Simulated scan of single mutants.
Amino acid sequence: MSSFLTVATRFEAEMVEKKSRFLAAAVPVRTESDALAALSEVRARHPGARHHVYAYRMGVQVPHERFSDDGEPSGTAGRPVLEVIRRQGITNVLVIVTRYFGGILLGANGLVRAYTEAAAAVLSGAPKLHCSRMCDIQVTCGYEHYGKLTHLFEQQDLRIYHPEFAESVRFTLVVMEESVPSVLTLLSDATSGQAACEVSPASYVGVTDDGELVRDVWPEPASD
């Protein structure tokens, strides 16, 4: 296991089905305590709601999963929410769907559909973190090579971080652990071996949809 997908920040969405309001929230979590705290916060914000259905999934190799129908008929709410999380391949996330009853019964099929759609809407809209084991490569090169390297990096979809321009150019590449040898070869070939490279130990790094880095990510649940 070298990569996983999670949500970058809390995200909320709302839908209405036959006058019932479904307020969905996707929350990044690393522990069961995180999940319970977020659930308590939502319950406090919506004391008049009829149900606070939830599901969470944490970890990658052997995911820890839990769901609750919170008073809805068994199998019509929490499990459909969990199935959406699974289908979207997301982990370390809690999805809460709060329902304000609108006076019209939806029936079992209607409930499954409504909770499924609410969970899918909030997870589809939530900003994502694409997390992998990655290494920093600190590169120092001459100006005569920098232009060529930037062109090669564009072709390889490599992004330059923290460039510094002094007597020489210094910058950082953040690459997948398994790609380090090929990137080092590219740097050596492009600069005739003149680029100085320092590789950091691999760690899990998240990359947002905008290409920003998030360092504090971990694939497995943290201990409470």
Results as ranks from 00 to 15, higher is better:
1 M>T: 02
2 S>Y: 10
2 S>A: 08
2 S>M: 11
3 S>D: 14
4 F>R: 02
6 T>Y: 01
6 T>F: 01
9 T>M: 06
17 E>H: 08
20 S>M: 06
21 R>M: 14
21 R>Y: 15
26 A>G: 08
28 P>N: 02
29 V>A: 01
33 S>N: 05
34 D>C: 10
35 A>P: 06
38 A>Y: 05
41 E>S: 15
41 E>Y: 09
43 R>D: 05
44 A>S: 11
46 H>G: 07
48 G>E: 12
48 G>K: 14
50 R>D: 04
51 H>C: 01
53 V>N: 02
55 A>R: 06
55 A>I: 05
58 M>E: 01
59 G>K: 00
59 G>V: 00
59 G>R: 00
60 V>Y: 04
60 V>F: 04
61 Q>T: 08
62 V>Y: 00
65 E>M: 08
68 S>V: 12
68 S>N: 13
68 S>D: 13
70 D>I: 13
71 G>P: 03
74 S>A: 14
76 T>D: 09
76 T>I: 06
77 A>Y: 10
78 G>D: 09
83 E>N: 14
85 I>E: 10
87 R>V: 00
88 Q>A: 04
90 I>W: 03
90 I>R: 07
91 T>I: 03
91 T>E: 00
93 V>N: 02
94 L>T: 01
95 V>W: 10
99 R>A: 03
101 F>G: 12
103 G>C: 09
104 I>S: 09
106 L>Y: 09
111 L>N: 05
112 V>E: 09
113 R>E: 07
114 A>T: 09
122 V>K: 07
123 L>A: 12
123 L>D: 11
126 A>Y: 03
126 A>F: 07
126 A>H: 03
129 L>K: 00
130 H>P: 11
133 R>L: 13
134 M>H: 02
135 C>T: 02
136 D>E: 14
136 D>H: 13
140 T>F: 09
141 C>F: 08
142 G>C: 09
146 Y>C: 11
148 K>M: 12
148 K>V: 07
149 L>S: 02
154 E>W: 10
155 Q>I: 06
158 L>D: 06
158 L>E: 06
158 L>I: 06
159 R>V: 10
159 R>Q: 14
161 Y>S: 07
163 P>W: 00
163 P>R: 05
165 F>C: 07
166 A>N: 14
167 E>Q: 12
167 E>C: 10
170 R>Q: 15
171 F>Q: 03
175 V>F: 04
177 E>K: 04
178 E>M: 08
178 E>F: 06
180 V>E: 00
180 V>A: 02
180 V>S: 01
186 L>F: 03
189 D>E: 05
190 A>D: 12
190 A>K: 11
192 S>R: 13
193 G>F: 03
195 A>P: 04
196 A>Y: 13
199 V>D: 00
204 Y>W: 13
208 T>V: 03
209 D>I: 04
213 L>A: 03
216 D>Y: 11
216 D>N: 14
218 W>I: 03
221 P>G: 13
221 P>M: 13
222 A>T: 02
223 S>V: 07
223 S>C: 07
223 S>E: 07
223 S>Q: 11
